[in-house]
Nucleic acid binder design. Structure first.
Lengths: 246, 246
DNA sequence: GTAGTCTGTGAACAGTCGTACACTGACTGA
DNA sequence: TCAGTCAGTGTACGACTGTTCACAGACTAC
């Protein structure tokens, strides 16, 4: 059937796939310097080394290319999460390691992160919604992960989502800060990293204090203090579990 | 000297100022649907009802107009902060009220917030940097505000900046979430607001546990647990001060 | 009153844009 | 081998872009 010619140029499908990837790569490269809405079809094809009209052999729209880029970028993010999850030193140094992994990925896949950060609230609605959906999915995954922690395993789904959202927020802000830091200034980045770790620590410090039942209506109970009923020792222990100190 | 004609068309300066503002308003309106980098000078002048070339009578660049828009937008934000600060019910219901004020301002000055959110990581570098600077200034202001709280008044500047950064992050995320929520779905927004309040509560719950000295190098002390030395009761009291329960 | 200032006009320019269309020529499958 | 597929080419089109220049005409200052 397919007389796959292993010679010079490879099969037709492979070559098509190669130019398609060239278009994606060229777009991603250009998007480091500008936003998607100002990126023209002609710019992309020019950078990819093909004629403008050939673009339509691969994508119907620039929008379609954008969606593929989002998918590609989030595949990177998912790989990052998998790496963090696979870390054998979970529970210990978890904050330190997570931030470490984040920073590594942001550097390695700079353009993917930059693209997502830029288009998260960019002008193109379809990209915005796609990204929003992915991040939501992301927080959900983290929430299920969090459920495996002692102490947290007794939390409700809603509260775990809450905490996950908080953590994802901090992580996203950190990634964005790193992307915007002066490129060759290690001290600036170090400060961002330190801040991120401390902020995450600060968040986790609140965890043992949190009780789902009292948080559901924050403006109610004008008389009842409804303080956490957790004891000091248990709170302390639970807090230290999420901390860096082994 | 100036024979200010109070009649029909007002003075020349006033009329110039009026078309200038028309340009700004037109741009802001257009920016609800697209990003700044894709906004053309001709679009703005068309919407403002003047000829393209007249644009240069008011701004040298589109970039200059963008910077003015940022200034205008942050003036709104500063007014919001002043409103929150002026609230006599500080300390009590502070989280609830702050979120309330935020939501009100986001709705009232929708386009300002939308513009800033969109351009915070947009394609135009000069706008990005301007916004980043303003937000930093913002967190600093909040940090000084926080210093007036009991318990927090003994914190160092650095730690206050840290906490302020967390809060600003949460607020920014909340504003962005509101902007992206389905316009006429009150339940979606209510959920965002509730989430924001809970997240802020979660953050403040960590506050009493925080000790500056132990947080400065999160990967150190591999042996010493270095737990918070604060007693359970004091932590509890300090936490409740920042909470909604009066 | 008059000369001068200055906001807004209108035509024109060189570019860039997305896309339609007819085409080439190498690879494909029988 | 040979007809067919199809990635990539080249030309052409109307629309839109930022910016120039000379000009009009209402307001200003003396």
């Amino acid at each position: 059937m397919n007389s796959r010619t292993p010679g010079s140029g490879a099969t037709r499908q492979e070559r098509k796939q190669r130019t398609r990837q060239a278009l994606l790569d060229a777009a991603l490269l250009l998007l480091e310097q500008q936003s998607f809405s100002s990126l023209s079809l002609r710019q992309v094809t020019r950078a990819a080394g093909i004629v403008p009209t050939a673009f339509y052999r691969h994508f119907e729209d620039m929008d379609e290319l954008g969606l593929v880029l989002i998918d590609e970028s989030f595949r990177t993010l998912r790989a990052m999460i998998r790496a963090a999850r696979a870390d054998p030193r979970t529970y210990e140094h978890i904050i330190h390691n997570s931030v470490q992994i984040l920073v590594g990925y942001v550097h390695e896949h700079d353009s993917h992160f930059r693209f997502i950060a830029r288009e998260r609230f960019g002008g193109v609605a379809v990209l915005r919604h796609a990204i929003r959906g992915e991040i939501r999915l992301f927080a959900s995954d983290l929430a299920t992960d969090l459920a495996r922690f002692p102490y947290l395993d007794r939390w409700g789904t809603e509260d775990l989502q809450l905490l996950a959202g908080l953590i994802v927020n901090a992580m996203v802000s950190t990634a964005e800060a790193i992307l915007d830091a002066p490129p060759q200034d290690p001290s600036a980045e170090a400060e961002i990293v330190t801040t991120a770790r401390r902020q995450l620590r600060m968040i986790t410090l609140g965890v043992p204090q949190w009780h789902s039942s009292e948080g559901h209506d924050s403006r109610s109970s004008p008389a009842a203090p409804s303080r956490p009923t957790v004891t000091a020792s248990s709170a302390d222990t639970a807090a230290s579990r999420l901390h860096d100190s082994p």
